[in-house]
Amino acid sequence: MENSRKRVAVLASVGLLGNFENKKSLEEIIFDASKKVLDSLGLTIEDIDSLVLAGQDEIDGRVISIMPSTGPAGGVGKDTTLIASSSDHALIYGYLRLLAGQGKNVLVMGWAKPSESVDPDRAELMSCEPFLLRQIGMNNTIAAALQASKLVSQGLETSNSTGKLAWPLGDRDLPARGDSVYALVLAVEGSFTPGEEIAWIEDAGWTTMSYELGARDINDFSALKIAIEQISNRSPHATSKNWDAIEIAGDSEYVVRSVSREFELKSGVEINKSGALADLPTSPFVSGLARMVMAIDRIKLLPKGGNMVAGIGFNGFAGQGAAVVVFSGSKGE
């Protein structure tokens, strides 16, 4: 990263999550999270330059969900964008906006409320192309099982709950489902009081591979490798060898366990210290952003200084796309 470029910091983050939020509407939990993160900084929406939101229409049952969600998020009268691909992309897009000089700060939000959907798996089926795969049937669970089967064939041990959902996956291998909304405020250095930040963004990388499961090696982590390579090329100091901790939103625990095998990591690196996938209810659309918020939380827990923590998210079936954001506790040079 060029030294002359202004750095971007995370000033605050909040996560509201519960297994099933039945007492509030989706719009109300979006409003609550937006207010909470702004209140934590003593800001109002008037202090925010732009919003980058991420919602998944087919899970929440709100087509073109930016229409009903802009208001509760705080976007009325503001530069507001909604990202449909993945919530972690909203964080990256917000980061890029600030690097590009588009404002001094941005409110980033991502959410999914699977409790609104009578059958979230059925909604995931609609992610399939309509020509063949939708008729055969596919969802995140089945795709994760296919991926895990290849990892097992390469020597990864099966888990204790093997085979109870879709071989080799058991219920402890998959991310727990739950309603969640996350909100963060990012800001450019110079626009806030030094020390107010809770983490700095060192760099971000992301990519997408072939949609077709049969056209790619779904256990080679190509998308993740490319995303990390992007970071290493631009910011060698932020390469995976220097990460002190990783929070990864794997499609299954098999993916989490494979990371240390696939990548050159620092000895003793902490992986998913915030909790197992099955213990932190979220939704596949939000899980990447959730882990990035957890990565920021890890920064807060590590000794003040240059500790580096990566948040990793995937999108699409079996890691079609991957996004990595590297956070650090110090601004560096």
Binding site: K23, K24, S115, E116, R134
Partner: peptide, 19 residues
Amino acid sequence: FYEQTWDLQYKHALGETTS
């Protein structure tokens, strides 16, 4: 051509105010 229907069902939480 395939004719397909999206048969997605939802149970929207209305919240206290709308209720």
